[in-house]
Design a protein around this nucleic acid. Structure first.
Lengths: 215, 215
DNA sequence: GGGAATAACTGAACACGATCATAATTGATC
DNA sequence: GATCAATTATGATCGTGTTCAGTTATTCCC
């Protein structure tokens, strides 16, 4: 049974409407920005009534997820593939995180709204929720592999170490997109350095030859 | 010249109005919640016209800052004082951070809105902006002192190490108040452990006797 | 103190997200 | 294919944050 024709007329219509809504939202957000786009505009462009929109999404912000999910899946897959071809844990993480920072840089205002939503929407089990969990699990898997390689200490659960690492990613996204206190160019090097410091430790006994440039 | 009487009638009226607005917002947010409180209610309770409110704040969310600032100043001062009586860096940080987590726990829904605003409002040089900077600087000062004690490696700027530590605080606040994926009881111990791991490092060479409990 | 200039205030009006009673469409049953 | 229950769609309507043209209060100057 061909995928496109599965189900009755009802289900096909619903899928098509959701598709049109997603496409309309994506296009308008890209050209006008999130706040500046009204729900009515999206409905008009999608060819549905204003009330219909909210049968498909709980609120306007959920449209961000709808438009972001497919891109996020692609970024995650690409990052995962590149990470698989990389040795060092920090470098692997930067393959993943770097994909997203580069993507966010293309439309900072929209990305700010997306990230805000990612961090503050309580989890529905929808598509992006699952993806987020997969992402966290993959970071934990990378940690476990690094433990097996003897790169990371083995007296920690991979999940706990993954959280510690992910915290830096979240923080740099906040500083860059959220409060806008960090410059775009500083994000990748800064985040990489933060991850290195997480692995090395701040403790005095771990002092390395790799000095910070004093300002 | 007594402080209360400084300036002309205009300025005094403005101060009083701001005071009434702040008090009204605080009371209503506390009893009804942020979303459930309307701007008109606040205006009525404060005894000002609906338009007047927006001469004092850019938007409704800014009222969160107005109501939070004095509390935040107090929490910061208390935490700073307790930290001064504490030796270990992680313990010092927990004096500071713990004050805020305890405060946030008293009204999670409202705190979620506050934290969201803290992380996503681009900095105006207003009261809370300054306080945030002071907070970051104080963490850096604690790091510098720890470096002087030989507790933290000296090849890093205090600011950079402070960022790395603060990232964990931000992340745990996000997980707890933002996505609501972390339980309240797990926050203090989890955050403390994360800070310890930041100091110790995740690297294999730093393995300690202090094992995680495997789940 | 009177009058002009300026700053502050006000509530009606606006725009937009969301809802809901009603209408249209689809699928099941005969 | 006609009948009817169930599902889906619709746009007028509502509540709320925010604005703005008009009004009032304060200050300044003589």
């Amino acid at each position: 049974m061909p995928e496109a024709a599965v189900g009755g007329l009802r289900e096909r219509n619903k899928r098509e409407k959701l598709e049109r809504i997603t496409a309309a939202a994506r296009e308008l957000f890209r050209t006008k920005g999130f706040e500046e786009t009204t729900a009515r505009e999206i409905c008009e462009r999608a060819g549905v009534g204003t009330g219909t929109l909210f049968l498909y999404v709980r609120d306007k912000r959920e449209l961000l997820f709808l438009t972001f999910e497919s891109d996020a899946r692609r970024l995650f897959a690409e990052g995962k593939a590149e990470a698989a071809r990389t040795r060092d844990l920090v470098a692997q993480l930067m393959c993943l995180f770097g994909r997203f920072t580069a993507y966010y840089a293309k439309d900072r205002a929209l990305s700010k709204a997306i990230v805000q939503e990612l961090f503050f929407r309580t989890h529905d089990p929808g598509g992006l929720g699952r993806l987020t969990r997969e992402f966290a699990e993959h970071v934990a898997d990378l940690v476990a592999a690094a433990q097996a390689r003897g790169e990371i200490r083995t007296d920690l659960t991979p999940a706990r170490a993954a959280m510690a690492l992910f915290a830096h990613y979240a923080y740099w996204m906040l500083g860059w997109l959220g409060t806008e206190m960090l410059a775009r160019e500083s994000v990748e090097p800064g985040l990489r350095r933060a991850l290195e410091l997480q692995v090395e430790g701040l403790g005095a006994q771990h002092e390395t030859r790799n000095h910070d440039t004093r300002r």
